[in-house]
Structure formats: C-alpha cells, structure tokens
Design a binder for these strands. Structure first.
Lengths: 197, 197
DNA sequence: CAGCCAGTTTAACACCGTTAACTGAGCTAT
DNA sequence: ATAGCTCAGTTAACGGTGTTAAACTGGCTG
C-alpha cells in the first residue's frame, strides 16, 4: 500500500513543481512568457503531462491567484490576532499588502490580471477572495459599526487606495523609487485608518 | 500630383482602419482576442499589410495607448481653460478620467496593461503620458505652491486613488453597480480636491 | 514589347494551448 | 509462461499566434 502513497507524494511534488516553475518564469521573464511547453521543459516532462494536473492554463493561473489570496488571508488573520486596536489592525494589514506586492510581484500581477498576466476566470468568485473581503470588512466594522452598505463603501475605498498605489508604484518604478512610493503609501494608509475613528 | 495625394489619403484611411478595428475587437472580445490576422481579415487585406503601417503589434498598441493619453490631455486642457478654481479643476479632470474609463474601457485597459492587454513598450516614456502628468501637477501646484517633491507626491496620491477606484470598479462590476462605484469615486475625489485647500 | 516597380499575397518559421493516438513497461489472470 | 490489460508518458497533430522572406501581379515607362 505504501507504493500508492509514494505515487501520491510524487504526484503532489510534480504538481507543486509545475506551480513554482510557472511563478519562476513569470518572475524572471513576465507572465507573458509563461507557456505550458516551457513549464514542461523545466520539470523535464512533455507538455501534455501538465494537463494531467491542471485542466487548462487558466486553471493553473487561478490556482496561483488563489494561493496569493490565501496567503493574504493568513497574514490578515495573524494581524487580527496580534492587535486589538482596529486602527493598528487596518494599518498593519495595509503594510502586509504592500510587502506582499513588492516581494512577490508576479503573484500580485496574476491576482489582478496585470502586465500580461491573464486568467479568464473571474477574480471575485474565488473562495479566498471572498474570505479576504469579509475579513477586512469585519475589521472596518469593529471600527465603526455602520450599515453593511457603508462598510462596503469604506472597504472599496481602502482597497482602491492600496491597490492604486501599489500598481502605480510598480509602473513608475523607474521614475520614483520604491522607497519613496512606500513612504507615501504608509502615510496615506495611516491617514485612512485614522480617519475612521 | 494629386495622384500622390489620393494615395496618401488612402494610406491614412487604411492606417486608421487598422487602429479602429483593433479597438473594435478589443471592445467586443477583449484585448486577448486581438490578433494581426483578425485585424487584417476585417480590413480585407492579408496579415503582412498591417506591418506596412506598424512595425509590430506592440507599436500598434502603443499608438492606441498614446491616443488615449492625448485624448485625456485635450480634455484636461479644456477643463483648465473652462474653470479658474483649482479645486473645481481637479474635481472636473477626475470626472473626465472616470467617464473616459467607463466609456472606452478597452483604451483604458491598453493604457495600463490591464485584463489581457499587453504592450511591452513602457507606459511612462510616451510623450503624451508626460504631458498629462505635468498638466495635472501644474493644477495641483496652482493650488498649493509647494516643492516639486511635494507636488509629485500629491499627484501620485491623486492618480492612485483615481486609478485604483477605476480598476476595482471595472473588476467588481458584477458585485457593485457602476453607479454605486461612481458615487464613491465622486465623493473621494471631491474630498481629495478639498483637502488640498 | 521588355523591364521595372509598387502593392499585395503566399508560404514559411517558430512559437502557442490543447487533444488524440500511440508506445512501452509492469502487473494480472489464465 | 504468456496473453492481455493498465497506465504514465510520449509523439504528432490541429488551429491559432507574431513575424518575415519570397513570390507574384498588374500597370506604367523606356
């Protein structure tokens, strides 16, 4: 029976090899350069093998996207446990978002279909995406217990400022250093969090 | 000699035919579906003809992108002439930006490499992009004549909020109606403009 | 009529996502 | 032992992509 187990282990190893190879190529050459054949070459298999693990390229990209949102959710939960002050919570979550985007830009890109990354599956139907949304909305609610509608508005605002600054900072990396952008980001997110009090 | 002129006219007609066909396909099926052969079919020529007008697909996309920034610049200039109050100016150009993104999403997408649109040429080296930047920065300066550095920060903030809300509004179109998003956008931009006073 | 030249097309290259058909090795049942 | 089956993995193919070189076509000129 342990033969089956070994087989299972191998399968999972190959599977995660596909995922991490995809991310590697994306990091080095951009998502636009990620192809099934290139992934297959890297893991020393032929192209159709990839389809034993993922129904399509879209599904593979979606997996990486969901992985990204899952990572964020875990970090957000960690922050929520760590701090009681909603203002602190919101600020720290904002910083986690920034660091994630800076350290793993290729994942951030596939999460939002940026810069050549394109996954046809809708972002907002993923389970993790929804989880992240309600997590942040809960934090905002613990701040100011307003109507569901108002919370959604505030969440939309928070998300927009964060996402907007992150994407533009990526885009303007040549014009404006990441440190400069980060400073503006920190200040803006601090101000937003404080404004909720 | 008028034969040459007619030839020239024809050339320009075909050229703009290529551009508008590309936009048509993008609008209907997304940028991901825009291919040289499909464009050629639509204008009833063979594929290599497109290369008589554009060195590459990237150059074609960049042309459309620059067209977008040119449009914005013209609108911004119109607004600047129309109003003297900097607060009003900033608010009005914010609204122009929103309307543009809503009415011509396919152009907005190629301007920022969103949702499958991908042009390898850097956004921020385009002449029009720079022009738009300094136009908005001038408006902010006429508000509060601070250091160049401060102005750049404020411009980055304005752009981030605007761009962030626009892209998320596009993404969440299913969850949140465009009207709802627009309301939040309007309020946020009004608040930002007022905060500069 | 020959030759040239511009405009246009065909054919090709190397790649892409994806699928069907095939191979070969190991296991099973007679 | 051998015939048959299963299954991981392959090759080959389809229709598509951006792009380029070569070939063609038709009208004008010497």
């Amino acid at each position: 029976m342990e033969v089956l187990e070994r087989k299972q282990r191998n399968r999972e190893q190959t599977r995660s090899g596909i995922v991490s190879t995809a991310k590697d190529i994306a990091r080095r050459e951009g998502w636009q350069a990620v192809s099934i054949r290139k992934i297959a070459d890297a893991i020393e298999y032929s192209a159709p093998i990839v389809y034993e693990y993922f129904d399509s390229k879209d599904v593979l990209l979606d997996e990486i996207r969901q992985e990204g949102f899952r990572h964020l959710r875990n970090e957000y939960e960690r922050i929520t446990k760590l701090y009681r002050d909603p203002e602190k919570r919101l600020y720290e979550i904002s910083m986690v978002q920034w660091e994630f985007a800076v350290k793993q830009p290729e994942i951030y890109q596939v999460m939002y279909n940026l810069n050549g990354a394109f996954c046809a599956l809708p972002v907002h139907e993923g389970q993790e995406t929804q989880a992240v949304s309600s997590l942040v909305q809960d934090i905002i609610f613990s701040f100011i217990p307003k109507s569901k509608e108002s919370i959604r508005r505030l969440y939309f605002e928070w998300w927009s400022i964060s996402h907007g600054m992150i994407t533009l900072a990526m885009m303007l990396k040549g014009q404006q250093s990441v440190e400069q952008s980060q400073q503006v980001y920190q200040e803006a997110m601090r101000r937003f969090a404080r404004s909720l009090k």
